[in-house]
Design a protein around this nucleic acid. Structure first.
Lengths: 250, 250
DNA sequence: GAAAATTGGTATGAACCCAGACCATTAACC
DNA sequence: GGTTAATGGTCTGGGTTCATACCAATTTTC
């Protein structure tokens, strides 16, 4: 009767139960703060832009306005946004992207490291997959414009502070072009973690040039409709970034 | 001042804000019910197996025991589990996997259909990616055993009712072998949706034979350490299933 | 300049969720 | 057979979240 506890039926499935059940996300307040802060830091809402009205955001996040307002208050207190009342008012992003080297490579907990390595492994699957999917689909002119514009924006952002946000937006744009909300979710989550990691290490200009070349290869492969080439280019990009991060993390 | 509302800075990013923010998962009770019911239906906890004690499950799901118990009560009322008290007691799975053809292809809402198509697109990326990742990694003897056993189990399950659960466990096993919790989450979510879709359509024996051949190809490629072959085999498998489902869904 | 519309700010009662302690029942153990 | 341990069942007080109003400020519109 003791053996029956571990899921009966063979040893194969003995590992699944522990792996499949994931923590339920409670605490709406914290979840809102995290999502909004991430969106701002990734540049989804750039410096100076106005967030949607509270009522609208609350509906998007499936949260009561009271809870959303608490999250807003936290963002305000953290210096990420500023709020003004009345018609035409709203909440404006005032966060200046931090300079990476400003923060030293803080000591990371084992759990933190595991989370980061997990994100890199997941990224190696999802981002190349997204690039291949977009390359295999028929892109509208509008879609092509968006991709090219996002790429040019990264190219133009030589200043390190803006480079990170442009880079995130570039990757998110590719995800958005798949049209799949699950893909967008996955890439957003991955980019948030990568962003966090990159803040912890100094940024080398050579890396930026290197990344730009790979971005260009990805965009070309997508525009020419070559899925395998797009996947390989993005895999190379992920591998290089991952090698850099893993090396500077130990 | 009106134009500034739509995220300032060019038209490219005008689409991102709406796409990136996702609903916050509140309502712990419903989330628990959904996760447990899914795990049971996918065969993570097979018929006759005992679930972990309430205190343990509550901790795994990051939920109070009171909330977990409410979820358990719902599962009990739905006829999925049975509970007995005292030492050696616990909650046992009593759900018999339903016969697919029993339920007619119910009318689906547009939102439902969109969700389903999204899941298929996501699956086409994540499952082949997971197969390639596993094939590229060095597998322990234990891991090889698990993979082979999971495959043989599907092979042996000719009865339709058990076939679905074996199939889900097979795909989940590959995900688990990547060692990445994000990959496991993604595949679990995708399998849950695919499972839901397959329940809505009759199952043809020819499809099972077809799938088995593809499963074999995936396993062989993984065991031989050929990532590209593993990816292609799994892509073929996903494409065939997706074509079938999309066809019978309109 | 007055009215209307849009936006953030505040208040309240109900429902939900949590942590912890304690009770009841049953199988395992000596 | 008696004791112990494991497990589900119950209770309570306090914090969170929700839905729904209504108030306040400010710009747009006429």
């Amino acid at each position: 009767m003791q053996a029956a506890r571990d899921t009966a039926q063979g040893s194969i499935q003995a590992v699944l139960p522990g792996a499949v059940l994931r923590p339920v996300r409670s605490h709406a307040f914290e979840a809102c703060v995290e999502q909004l802060a991430t969106a701002i830091r990734l540049g989804v809402y750039p410096l100076g832009s106005t967030l949607p009205p509270e009522r609208e955001l609350a509906e998007q996040l499936h949260v009561s306005r009271a809870t959303l307002r608490e999250a807003m208050a936290a963002l305000r207190q953290a210096g990420l946004v500023q709020t003004t009342r009345g018609r035409g008012g709203g909440t404006v992003v005032i966060l200046k992207p931090p300079t990476p080297s400003a923060r030293a490579a803080a000591r990371t907990t084992p759990a933190q490291r595991a989370e980061w390595l997990d994100a890199l492994a997941f990224r190696r699957i999802i981002e190349p997959g997204a690039a291949a999917t977009v390359a295999a689909s028929e892109l509208s002119d509008e879609a092509r414009r968006q991709l090219i514009a996002a790429h040019e924006e990264v190219d133009a952002a030589t200043r390190a502070a803006h480079y990170r946000q442009s880079d995130s937006r570039f990757h998110l744009t590719i995800a958005a072009l798949t049209g799949s909300s699950r893909v967008i979710d996955a890439v957003t989550s991955v980019q948030a973690t990568v962003h966090e990691m990159l803040l912890a290490i100094p940024q080398l200009p050579t890396n930026i040039a290197h990344s730009d070349a790979q971005h260009t290869a990805v965009v070309q492969a997508i525009l020419e409709g070559r899925p395998d080439a797009a996947r390989r280019a993005m895999e190379q990009h992920c591998d290089d970034t991952a090698a850099l991060l893993r090396g500077l993390l130990t």
